[in-house]
Every structure is written in C-alpha cells, then in structure tokens.
Design a binder for these strands. Structure first.
Lengths: 222, 222
DNA sequence: AAATGTTTGATTGTATACAATAATACACGA
DNA sequence: TCGTGTATTATTGTATACAATCAAACATTT
C-alpha cells in the first residue's frame, strides 16, 4: 500500500475486537441501544461470547468515533445527538461535500461517471413509482460515488464518518418526501461535473446539503 | 453536562491508559518516533512502567486518531504523511476554517474578541522584532480562539484534530518567514468578524489557509 | 428525622498467563 | 545453488485473576 490513509479504516473483521467493534457500532446506529444507555463490559462480552479484553478495546475506539462516552471508573454510555449537533454536522458536511464535488470534477473516471448517470436515471424511475426505500438507497450511493470520485481518501473518510450520524438522524425522522427533489439536485451536480465546472459543482453540492438540512427542520426534526 | 460532544476529547489523564495515550501522541508528533517505525507493546510498556493492557488500549485510540496504523497480528507502525495528504488536509481545513470564522462572527464573545485583538497586536510586535517562536505560538492561538468562538464543539474538535497534522508537517519544513503576512491576514479576518460580516470572514479565513498551503509548497515542502 | 459514616456489592482498571499468529533461521532434497 | 518445508522465537490476541473505584444500602449519631 503506497498511499496510506491517515485515519485508518477499522477493517479488522477477523479479530474478536474488530467484530465487537463492528457489531456495537451497528447496534448503536440502528438504535438497539438507546441514547444514554449504559453498556457493561461483561454483559456485552457474554452476549457476543468473548471476554472483557476485546470489548474494552472496542469501547476505546467507539469512544473516539463519538458513539459512546466513557466516564472513568464508571461506565460507557451511548452518546446522544442534540439538535445543535445535527445542524453543525450538516453545515460541516455542506462544505466538505462541496469540496468533494469539486475534486470529483477534476478526478472522476469514466466508469464512475457512468455509475452516476445510471444512479440518477434509476432514481428518477423509482421517484415516479414512489419507491422510497430504493430512492434512499440510491441517494446514499450517489454521495458515496462522489466521495470515491474525489480521489481523496482523507476526505472520503471524513465524509463517511459524518454519514454515520446522518443515518442515525434519519432514523429519528419520518422518511420525508424529498426524494424526487433531491434527485433533481443530484442531476444538477452531475451535469456540472460532466461540464468540468468545479466552481458550479462545489456550489451546487454545498446547497444540496443545506437544502437537505432545511427539509429536515421543516419535517419537524426536534 | 447538557451538551455532550459527539467526539469526546481524550482527557482521562489519570488512568494509565490516558497517560500512555497522551505520551505516545506527544512523542509521535514531536518526531521522537520516525515514520514507519514499529511500536512494540512490551517495549512501550516497560518504558512507561505499565503492562501491555493500557498500552494496547492506547494503541487502539491512536489508530483511530490516525497516528499509528495497526496491522493485525503484526504490529503498530507510525503512519507517514504523504504530500497529497498534506494538500488534502489544507484544502479541507480551508473550508472548515471558513466555517469557523463565519460562526465566530455570529457567536464571538466580547472577551474572545478582546483576546483576538490582543493576539494580533502582540503578533505585530513580535513580527517587527523577528521573534519567530512567539509568532508561531500566537498564530496557533489565534486559530484556537476562533475555533472556540465558533461555538461549535463539533467543528472545534474536527479542526483541532487536523491541527495535529499541521504541527507534524511544520516540523518537516523550515519555519518560514510567513509570520508577518499571516498576521496581516489574521487582522483582516478579525476586522470582518468585528464588522459582523460572516460572508467576508468566511472568505478571508478560507483564503488564509490556501495561502498558508501555497507558502508551504513554495518553501519546498516535499 | 436528617446528616454522616460504614459496609457491601458491582463495575471498571490493570497485570499476567496462555493461545494464536507471523517472521526468521535452518535443514533437507532436488 | 535454489527452493521448500519445518522448527524456533518473538509478538500480538484473548482470557482471567486481582486491585481500585464507585454507588447504594444500611447503620449510627446528633
């Protein structure tokens, strides 16, 4: 590996620690554990059939990922996300997604561009049919394609990190009917990328996230 | 604590793990350990007088912070920073510093503004005298003030994270003679904040980081 | 009854023993 | 000599035992 990520992906799926980490992350994001709930080392260990050691190491990582909060000598608690946190995340994302779009404009490959076009086209279809599930799936994928096309592991990692929180937030809100409008905006971003206009693609991607946030607020996010 | 940080600061200075973590981070950032150097659990433990357990837990955190890279069943290696990483970091920072300046414009307190003015004033003095050490110190502090003034723990945490890398990079380059120009730009940002012009302050802070990067390149950063 | 001290149990923090893995050195045969 | 297989050793991965800490229940004193 010539180019090493600064923030390494936690991909050690075959160690117990890695499995505990992935599993706990999933469970927290899916809402299995409530906000503020206390996670006990032995209980988690027994549930997953491992000792406390790998559980503790996974805890340390989850703490740094921001999913749990460890109080020394007390315990580990699932962190909550405040309304302000959500706003901050979306505003930060808006800037970084803008940057990703700019870089994608400069580095996207033909294959990636093709997948993007396919994505937008397919989304249009599902929007007409009212398939919200598939629409959400395609929405996520569109952004991932853009991250990958940016050609920056650093930025990709940052944005994927934030995406975790977005997923958690979405769980708390009704899946809105923004799908079609969102897809239209995707199309605009894509066209700007195709036109090799970094200025425009950055601007549109930026606005896209702002719009998503405003939609969230309008839909009564607490 | 009503508002909880999403990404928790690692502040557990009184546990062995916390001390190992802080110490290793310092040593890596200061350059005591070279890029690619392998860190062995027992060796580190012996050096700090602790067993492997706290060392391992600290390793997991350092891995997520991106300072080391853990290869399963092999070892922990100090990560390197490529020229592209540096560029990516500066570009990402440029956007986030812009956002921080915007928010600072909206949320800065009188005390913070006063410290900022003092900072710029003092820096001007040291610039004239050619005190590079103090100038660099004040430079760092200026940005920290802005992070704090942004009123966003999320953003503050992100930017402080990146700052780590900036420090490492600076170690590798001659301390440039950019100090005075940098301070002039700080003054501009501050004036925009004072004038309550978020648009302008974001733009200036953004450009400030771009300039810093270009200076880095000009000064022959590899 | 209120406040304070004490005991007890549960939980985390750390050290250490043992298992699994990987790299190295070496022996052996083609 | 080269390549392959095997033994050895060092290192990480995991489990467990013990120490330190905290919280809650209980007792004691005023």
């Amino acid at each position: 590996m010539s180019e090493n990520d600064l923030k390494k992906e936690v991909t050690d799926k075959y160690s117990l620690r890695g499995r505990v980490f992935s599993r706990l992350r999933e469970d927290i994001l899916s809402g299995k554990y409530e906000e503020g709930e206390e996670l006990r080392e032995v209980a988690i260990g027994e549930e997953l059939g491992v000792s406390r050691t790998p559980v503790r190491e996974a805890f340390r990582q989850l703490e740094l990922e921001g999913l749990i909060r460890i109080v020394p000598n007390k315990g580990a608690y699932v962190t909550g996300i405040s309304a302000k946190d959500v706003k901050d995340i979306y505003m930060i994302r808006s800037r970084l997604e803008g940057l990703a779009a700019r870089w994608a404009t400069e580095h996207i490959t033909d294959e990636q561009l093709e997948e993007m076009e396919e994505n937008v086209y397919l989304a249009k279809f599902h929007a007409e049919k009212g398939h919200l599930e598939q629409l959400a799936e395609l929405d996520n994928r569109f952004h991932e394609i853009m991250y990958e096309a940016s050609g920056s592991k650093m930025l990709e990692h940052q944005l994927k990190d934030f995406h975790q929180y977005v997923i958690r937030v979405r769980k708390k809100t009704l899946s809105s009917a923004r799908g079609p409008k969102s897809n239209l905006e995707h199309e605009g971003i894509m066209e700007a990328i195709k036109a090799r206009d970094p200025e425009l693609s950055e601007k549109l991607a930026h606005e896209h996230i702002i719009n998503a946030y405003e939609n969230l607020v309008k839909n009564g996010f607490a």
